[in-house]
Amino acid sequence: MRSDKQKKKKRKGLKIFLIILLVFVLGIAGYLGYAYWKTTSTFNKIHTPIEGKENASVRLDKKQPFSVLILGVDERSGDKGRSDTLIAATVNPTKNKIQMLSIPRDTKTTIPGYDSNPHKINAAYAYGGVKMTDATTTQFLNGIPFNYYIKINMEGFRDLVNAVGGVDVVNDKDGLTLATQSSEGNKKVFNKGKIHLNGEDALAYVRIRKSDAEGDFGRQKRQQQVMSAVAEKALSTGLIWRFDGILNAIGDNIQTDFTMNDITRIAKDYRSTLSNVENLQVKGEGSRIDGGPWYYVVSDAERARLHDELAENLGMK
């Protein structure tokens, strides 16, 4: 078990798309009036509230804590897909802390509004989109509400990586191999050390699971690693002339219920939280239920622990 000191260790990573928005939008908009117009236009395109959902009340102008559900969805032509990545994030400006809880996609749960049978949590998106995923994740976490969501199309993720000119990451494992062939017709193999990833390579790198001894947890780390690298690159002043490409990639592959005003407020008043990111991990065991599908089984006690951790950062009583 990690110590409290380890859990509170500050990290550069985990600047998922949320943090690209929080900092990148504000910084670039200050340089060009056109950039501000373009950014506003992009937000008008991607702004998609969850139909019929009344978000838990939060006052950003009063610097209240808030929560975000982040979905990386594996959508392909003719296939709605499932949530390949599911992250529950909480942001507390008083504590200057962001929590990121990655929930394994094979986690066993029930899906409210669908049926009472056990399912993998990533199926909630296939059955009912963002709305059902939101409700399922809240139930799994014993009532943690989500004020906002961000959905990223993982197929379009390559566009974002290409828009910033590719990224450099340090791979800590030898022989990581994507089991299926890429669209370029070759199996992707990544060896230990510093590697440069274009969009196609990055998509393969963050999808690897079977050749990694850490399985889903290893994949989650790579997703966080690459998104962090994308954010670092997007925030560099040398990429100002890539602005159009970056926003086009965002506009084509992102949906969120954040408004432009929300992001501007967060970038102004919540920026100090970015230096302190706490990673939380779901503890469970792999199991086959009655000889059927493989699930990641999480105990009620663990779900209660996760609820309490997130609730504390949200200031819930």
Rank of each mutant, 00 (worst) to 15 (best):
Y205V: 00
N198M: 06
G215F: 05
D159L: 14
G199N: 01
V164P: 00
D159I: 01
K210F: 07
L178H: 10
A202P: 06
K221D: 12
E200S: 10
D159T: 12
L176D: 04
I152A: 15
F146I: 04
T137Y: 05
Q224Y: 08
A135M: 11
D172Q: 15
V206N: 06
L197T: 06
H196Y: 15
A213V: 10
K187L: 13
G156R: 06
G165I: 05
T138Q: 14
Q181Y: 13
R158L: 06
D174A: 07
I195R: 00
A179I: 09
G199A: 10
S182L: 11
Q224F: 11
N142P: 01
Q223L: 01
N191Q: 15
T180R: 15
E184T: 13
N191W: 11
G185W: 04
T133D: 06
V167S: 00
N198I: 13
S183R: 11
F146P: 02
V164K: 01
V169W: 05
Q181F: 11
D201H: 10
Q220G: 07
D172K: 15
V164R: 08
I195E: 04
Q181W: 06
F217I: 02
S182M: 12
L141Q: 03
T177M: 14
G143K: 05
Q223E: 09
N171L: 03
Y205T: 01
T136E: 02
L197S: 07
E184W: 14
I152F: 07
T138I: 06
D216R: 08
N153K: 09
N162E: 02
G199Y: 01
R209L: 10
L141K: 13
K173D: 09
Q225W: 02
V206Y: 12
G156M: 07
L176N: 00
Q220C: 13
L141P: 10
T138C: 04
A213F: 04
N162T: 02
D212N: 15
N191V: 15
R219A: 00
A213S: 13
T136G: 01
V189T: 12
G156D: 07
T180Q: 15
V167G: 12
D134S: 11
K194W: 04
Y148V: 05
I152Y: 10
I144E: 08
K192S: 09
Y148I: 13
Q225G: 10
Q225M: 15
T137K: 04
V167N: 04
D159C: 04
N186D: 14
Y205E: 01
L176G: 00
Q181C: 11
V206C: 09
L203N: 05
N153C: 03
G218K: 01
A179H: 07
G156A: 12
V169G: 08
R207E: 09
L203F: 05
T137E: 04
P145L: 12
Y149D: 01
S211H: 00
